[in-house]
Write a protein that binds this DNA or RNA. Structure first.
Lengths: 250, 250
DNA sequence: CAGTGGTCTAGACCACCTC
DNA sequence: AGGTGGTCTAGACCACTGA
């Protein structure tokens, strides 16, 4: 078969990359460029095979990997779709908090503040910005039912979220990542969390109705968009008296 | 091709299971039965294809899934091997603790106690035993360098670990799961962890050199062997002043 | 019904490891 | 050289969806 534009590395191969991985990169580029929007169907496997001049099986393997990474979602009989945070299934991927007893209640995000500032050394390092670059600082409470369980401080690069404001946050009924995705075209695809136990103090203690000095779970998160670019830094204080952080080691 | 003993469900299929999944189950059974030991190579894909009377591609897909689940490890040019906890790469899968700064030191497990008891209601529930069934209770410290970082209380079903004793633990230089696997043939393949922040007290506070009331990270774990059978319950108190629990949301 | 993804096959060839 | 897993292809057929 002729696959002119794609180099199958037959050389001794210090940097050998199989065809399906090159296809994967091409599909990624299209996603990144916004050729297909979150929730949209991408072209069928056979269409992509023609387009990239490879066999359907090779396209399939590329898509398989991307589905495993939660970038695409396959639906038999319907097509392959760009993953979206508006899909409730993808919601719990980024909030690993469940009640000690009983069913998971629907959570509600209560925005408290949203302002602009210049990046200090720490935020700049976490977000890969220059110190002094414009950032957005946002604080919010997460409630399950009537109970305030998480107090979040969220740091975002100002450039990417131009008009983000407390009003916009208050008027949105979507999850944060859904809002980021639909309004600002910033799709979170991966995150790293670091957990510590800390003593409650200040605003966090007050808002979560926890005595000063009592233990809270501190969850620091860096979230990444395409190309491993960090676009959110977050410190969350979790009251773990009635909830816990669930993790599966597989 | 003739695949007499395997039913390819051509019927309307309420319980349709593709061939490769049936093959996977067969390989799983062999693993569970100990036909191939941890670290051993399993037969080559083509051998298994002949043995199960399917094409090599079908065996391949079965093995692919099992490799993704960390049950098998593929090594190009060499073969496919039964995953083992003696492989250092598999070690950090079950200890997601890294220092806030600097490189990860080698950790050292310091066994403190190991005794037998009867299961209380909670342990029985966690391990799927009858209340009153024989269990083993073990306590140990985990040190990184000279620093005690984790205090673990570990509950095991007595039946599976007949001669486990403090002496055996002290003489072993392997990781716990490596010991369980090599000495008792119990292979941990998956675990669930629930994390909370709690106030330090009693033995944990003392051993970790943390003041009473100060925050500790409590990590409760249930570990499973083949067939989703729970075979370990563990409560770990983590001192997160210099270390943190790392988790990737992917 | 046509179109999509999902399974299965058979065969060719490549990359890596060991002898 | 001969074995292993890894890639790629082409084609047949199955399962699911929606018009």
């Amino acid at each position: 078969m002729n696959r002119s534009p794609l180099s199958r590395a037959t050389a001794p191969s210090p940097t050998f990359s199989p065809l399906y991985r090159q296809i994967k990169e091409l599909i990624l580029k299209s996603l990144e460029a916004g050729e297909w929007q979150p929730g949209d169907a991408i072209p069928s496997e056979s269409e992509l095979a023609v387009r990239f001049n490879v066999s359907q099986g090779t396209v399939r393997k590329a898509i398989d990997e991307m589905a495993a990474e939660n970038l695409l979602v396959r639906r038999q009989g319907k097509g392959t779709f760009v993953a979206t945070h508006s899909d409730p299934r993808s919601f719990f991927r980024f909030l690993r908090l469940i009640p000690n007893e009983g069913e998971l209640q629907p959570s509600k995000s209560v925005p408290l503040e949203c302002g602009r500032a210049k990046a200090g050394a720490d935020v700049a390092r976490m977000l890969g910005l220059e110190p002094g670059a414009p950032i957005i600082i946002m604080r919010r409470l997460l409630k399950f039912g009537e109970e305030a369980v998480v107090f979040d401080e969220i740091y975002l690069p100002g450039e990417l979220f131009q008009d983000l404001s407390l009003d916009i946050l208050k008027q949105s009924d979507k999850s944060l990542y859904d809002l980021f995705e639909s309004r600002y075209g910033v799709r979170m695809i991966r995150a790293e969390e670091r957990l510590r136990a800390v003593a409650a103090e200040g605003v966090a203690a007050e808002l979560l109705h926890v005595e000063e000095g009592k233990p809270l779970l501190l969850v620091e998160r860096v979230a990444f968009t395409y190309g491993n670019k960090p676009v959110e830094w977050r410190r969350g204080f979790y009251d773990t008296r009635n909830f816990h952080y669930f993790n599966e080691l597989a």
